Computed example of a mutant assay.
Amino acid sequence: MSFEIKLPLFEGPFDLLLFFIERDELDIHDIPISTITNDFLSYLHELDQMNIEVASEFILVAATLMRIKAKVLLPRPVLNEEGEEIDPRDELVKHLLEYKKYKSVVQELAAMEEERMQQYERGNVMQELRALAQEQQVETELQHVDLYKLLKVYEKVWVRFTEEKKDNSHRVVQYPYTVEGQKGFIRQLLSKQPRDVSFVTIIEHNPNKIAVIFNFLAILELLQISEITIKIGEGYNNFWVYRTEDAEQA
């Protein structure tokens, strides 16, 4: 009778020994070494008759079994440090128990592998992006996106986010000007001038951009209440401001 032992991840002599033990319902801690050695050698003879090359690990285990069998048949007691006799089968039993433990783990891993194989694979990201772009007929850079480009974009966004997070305060600066205040400033200038004052002269007193805007707004309000009159010069590059009563006298 020949035996063919195949496991998903492990093939070898210990699989065969465990097969014999489970088949004959033997106690793994009290192996009938003569019986199991004969079964193991018979299996190797079957392989030889089928012209199948016997792996070196099978030959090694066969030699180990015959050595243990010889020790059992011709006992020369080996004692441990405590003076107790050492069973020559102990080392073999130890290896079988350890192998059986790993074999059970392999079965669990095989079940997990089978479960994972039932799940849909992620596939190739680049191919999926190109297929999606082609299906939607989009002519964008999405077709040429790769992981490196995505990481570079992420890096830039993260740096910008970090910089913005460092100082998210905004300072509100109150300008030292008001329309009413600049109206008083223009009235004061007109009172010092004999008749009129040019807008360029007003700017020269305070060339600050904000001050120029407030002065212009003040002039507009004074025009609205008819307190002043303006005269536009040649080329529209300048204008002159008069007090209304001075303009009427002129």
Rank of each mutant, 00 (worst) to 15 (best):
L92F: 04
M126F: 00
S104I: 08
E155Y: 13
L151G: 12
V138K: 03
L109Y: 15
V125S: 13
L132W: 04
E155Q: 09
D146A: 02
Y102N: 09
Y154C: 07
L96D: 01
E85R: 10
V125F: 11
S104V: 08
Q118I: 03
L147R: 08
L150S: 12
V157W: 05
Q119N: 08
L132T: 06
L92R: 02
Q119L: 09
A131C: 06
V153Y: 07
E98M: 08
E91I: 11
E108F: 01
A131Q: 11
M117I: 15
Y154K: 12
T140Q: 02
P88L: 04
E113G: 02
E139K: 05
Y120F: 11
L132Q: 05
E113Q: 01
E113V: 06
M126P: 02
H95D: 05
Q118D: 11
L92C: 01
E114N: 11
R116T: 12
K94R: 14
E91V: 02
E113W: 08
L151D: 07
Y120K: 09
K101T: 11
E141R: 06
V138A: 04
L96R: 05
Y120V: 11
L142R: 07
L92G: 00
Q143H: 13
I86Y: 05
V153N: 10
V157Y: 03
I86C: 02
I86M: 11
Y148F: 14
I86D: 08
Y120E: 10
Y99S: 04
T140K: 02
Q137H: 10
E85H: 06
Q119D: 00
A110C: 14
V145C: 01
Q127V: 10
K149F: 02
Q119A: 05
N124G: 08
L92N: 00
A110W: 12
L150Q: 10
E139M: 06
L151C: 13
E121P: 02
R116H: 15
D90Y: 13
M112W: 06
Q119P: 00
E98C: 14
W158P: 05
A111G: 11
E141Y: 09
V125R: 07
E114I: 12
R122P: 01
M126V: 04
E85T: 12
K103S: 03
Q127S: 06
A133F: 08
V125Y: 09
Q107L: 15
M126C: 00
M126H: 02
Q136T: 01
V138H: 02
K149G: 04
L96K: 01
R122D: 14
L129H: 10
V145R: 08
L92T: 03
Q134P: 03
N124E: 04
E115G: 14
Q137F: 07
A133I: 00
K156Q: 14
G123H: 10
K103N: 02
K94N: 09
M126D: 06
L142A: 07
Q107P: 09
H95T: 05
I86P: 01
